[in-house]
Design a binder for these strands. Structure first.
Lengths: 248, 248
DNA sequence: CGCCTATGCGTTGAATTTACACAATGTAAA
DNA sequence: TTTACATTGTGTAAATTCAACGCATAGGCG
């Protein structure tokens, strides 16, 4: 081996061994709740976007980096929710690659730190990574069998998100800056998986004191045009810190 | 090196590198909420009980093993709540030991998975580990500066516990099998850090349907003797699964 | 220009939460 | 023994919150 080969960058020197991060990226559009998935090379499975932790970074940075690379977004709402570490979860790893370093890296046992992210659907430009050949949104209801235990991770993320909604507001990261009350309600109904009374929902949301009603109405819409609202970021962040009162 | 030395057990072959678990063990007695801490050798700091993850075990098993070794308890309520991974959190590691293997191991960068545990105070037999020379309960209010970022971990665990109380019952793992309503209330007040109305508390707890009133009263107590209660384990576990209604 | 659908705003009764009142019990002091 | 006192058991009324529903209005569409 030549010195240059010895000095060649390796996954084993760049990243912490045995540790990965996986991100459940939620987006929201008219069709409902969407999840960002990667189509893995050399196999039919889709997988959650994931990555590894550099020798000198924290897991949040690693997840932020993954998110930036897959979505192009700099600022995302990111929340770690659980570690998945059963030894057998990695047992199915049977990667083959011309790159021996990569192959050995991927066939390690991994413990993975699960994050969920809430991102503005329409601002995302999905980008596959080096071991996948596609990256795209999937409607939550259409997601099939995923790689390894990624179905369990996805399911767990949704549970964590539903729990979070009980005491923290959501929406700032999932909706465009201006949105209507029916759109906000649709978001809540979709994530919670239940319908809510239109009038009680509106009263409750307004009572939280996070919304600012704009003077303009949505245009080009059939029937009565709803007003636009936007979040008061100051109040919103305060509610994230201190929590909301009740919950659904 | 002889073959036997090569085959000698090493932390690096037994455990996953860079990964640790730390446990915030909560107990409860008449003096309030207690935390189990270890006095580290060769330094004045106290620390949370922690350990490492074997090559073929999950992080929950690792934490359970740590708990078993420090408390003697087999069955404990254990909940992972966050990963602590800032690179600089390990920067303060300056362990020295005659055991070079151990020294190199301890001076790695670690990401640690935080767990909190709820245990029956009076059944615990605290046992120090190999790198500590004492293991004992501390009243939460008396805890001073801990090793590394363990103060932050402890604080974060308490926050997670308070959050959990909003939608899940606690007490089964923190109280003796038979307990009085004032004892249960004291537990809630201590963890939440606020006083609660005695009569409303009782009504609410009973309405949850988790308690069974026993025909006996506490004896040897000044003033009116309160009845004993115990948890209905079936209902309790159901509530852990499905969550409670409201919250404080 | 009326029809239909969805929004804005409001009302009412039920359910829950909160704040107290009062009797009962057992210890300890008078 | 009696009395005082602290604490528990049970109940109730007011206040607040929650849930279900009514109705007028706006705006596109035939």
């Amino acid at each position: 081996m030549s010195p240059t080969e010895l000095a060649a960058p390796s996954f084993f020197t760049e990243y912490l061994p045995h540790v990965s991060v996986d991100c459940v990226v939620f987006g929201f559009d008219a069709k409902g709740l969407q999840v960002l998935l990667l189509k893995m090379k050399h196999c039919d499975d889709w997988a959650l976007p994931g990555g590894f932790v550099r020798q000198q970074e924290g897991v949040e940075s690693a997840a932020t980096r993954v998110l930036q690379e897959r979505t192009g977004l700099e600022q995302v709402f990111l929340q770690q929710f659980r570690v998945f570490s059963e030894p057998r979860r990695s047992a199915a790893n049977k990667w083959t690659s011309e790159n021996e370093d990569l192959q050995a890296w991927l066939n390690q046992r991994f413990i993975t730190i699960g994050f969920y992210a809430l991102v503005p659907f329409e601002k995302v430009a999905p980008q596959p990574d080096s071991i996948s050949d596609a990256c795209s949104w999937w409607n939550l209801a259409d997601v099939g069998k995923l790689m390894l235990d990624h179905n369990a991770i996805l399911h767990s993320a949704l549970e964590a998100l539903r729990l979070q909604m009980r005491y923290q507001p959501i929406g700032y990261n999932l909706l465009p800056e201006k949105f209507t009350m029916p759109e906000l309600q649709k978001l809540y109904e979709t994530v919670l998986g239940q319908t809510l009374d239109r009038r009680n929902f509106q009263r409750r949301m307004l009572d939280f004191g996070l919304l600012e009603k704009l003077p303009e109405r949505k245009t080009g819409v059939a029937h009565k045009a709803p007003f636009y609202y936007r979040f008061n970021k100051t109040q919103y962040d305060k509610a994230l810190e201190e929590g909301l009162a009740g919950g659904w």
